[in-house]
């Protein structure tokens, strides 16, 4: 047994476990997650921003009580920031210390001050190397977040890593994972990720949740909110997703908004409070301007 504890009994068990940690997954996600863990494949999550892609990895780490290692992708991400880098300042200091030490006369050990500066002591382990590090006693969760932001070059490197879970450092040798990490990859689809990479993964598109699921999420994540208010919030947001907006509100926005309304001690939604808090739901000024006019009628449709 490579991973004795880090697995789910069944698809249903996966869904229930996540729910017990307040993550409401749809059946497709529960199935995908179960299979990804069971078969040792990465889970590739795509979806609009704010639907809870990153959250899956966080919840999974809690479910398995295992460390979460996160690699946030960005433009220009390279091997030195994703895998490892030598600690140059420390290396320089070490060289200097040794050479001044040897000038002082007390020659201990080697004459070569650069000996042993390419050892693990001087190695900065970046997320991907951390993930295959042998110090873990169970499989960690490796979250590769927003892969679409990294350059294409990085993808091909990732493809290599995913096939054998080992990293070769010329000065040290090949490091191999003892416990293969459970990998979650997310993408906001600002560009298409290469098919070769996707095919190695279990793919799941996270959609906006249904009205019932979203209500359940609000209830769990923003406790203490009047039930009627939660219903209205979710009904309004769901309506909003049918509107012609530059960016539709995700679940994250619903939760922010619900929390804000909770702080404002709102009991029911009314046009005034909606308009004054639109900034929490909509991320573009153009959308806010548009909704300032239309919100009252949308609200009316949503809550009758």
């Amino acid at each position: 047994m490579p991973r004795p504890e880090a697995r789910f009994e069944s698809v249903e068990a996966a869904g229930e476990k996540l729910a017990s940690l307040d993550y409401i997954a749809d059946d497709g996600l529960a199935t995908g997650l179960f299979l990804a863990v069971e078969m040792g494949k990465p889970l590739f999550l795509e979806g609009e921003p704010g639907v809870g892609k990153t959250e899956v990895a966080k919840v999974l780490a809690r479910a398995f009580d295992t460390p979460l290692i996160r690699l946030q992708c960005y433009e220009g991400l390279d091997i030195n920031h994703a895998v490892y880098e030598w600690n140059y300042p420390r290396q320089l200091l070490a060289i200097q210390a040794r050479s001044t030490g040897s000038q002082g006369g007390s020659r201990t050990g080697s004459d070569n001050p650069t000996q042993d500066i390419f050892t693990e002591e001087f190695l900065l382990k970046r997320p991907l190397l951390q993930a295959i590090d042998r110090s873990h006693d169970s499989a960690p969760i490796l979250l590769i977040d927003e892969l679409d932001r990294a350059d294409e070059e990085f993808e091909s490197f990732l493809l290599e890593l995913l096939s054998d879970f080992q990293v070769t450092i010329p000065e040290i040798g090949t490091l191999q994972a003892e416990h293969r990490p459970i990998i979650i990859i997310t993408s906001n689809r600002t560009r298409e990720i290469h098919d070769a990479l996707k095919r190695r993964c279990v793919y799941h598109w996270i959609d906006y949740p249904s009205i019932e699921k979203e209500l359940e999420i609000v209830r769990r994540k923003v406790p203490g909110l009047e039930d009627e208010l939660s219903r209205e919030i979710v009904a309004f947001v769901q309506r909003l997703r049918d509107q012609d907006l530059y960016k539709l509100p995700g679940v994250a926005e619903t939760l922010d908004w619900a929390a804000a309304l909770g702080h404002l001690d709102a009991v029911r939604l009314d046009p005034e409070v909606v308009v004054s808090t639109l900034g929490l739901l909509l991320k573009y000024q153009d959308d806010v301007d548009k909704l300032k006019v239309e919100a009252p009628s949308i609200l009316k449709e949503a809550i009758g």
């Binding site: 059946d27 497709g28 199935t31 299979l35 689809r189 098919d195 279990v202 793919y203």
Partner: peptide, 11 residues
């Protein structure tokens, strides 16, 4: 869902 997870890779 299993079939979709393995055979589909685009929305």
């Amino acid at each position: 869902h299993a079939a979709r997870g393995f055979l589909v890779s685009r929305r």
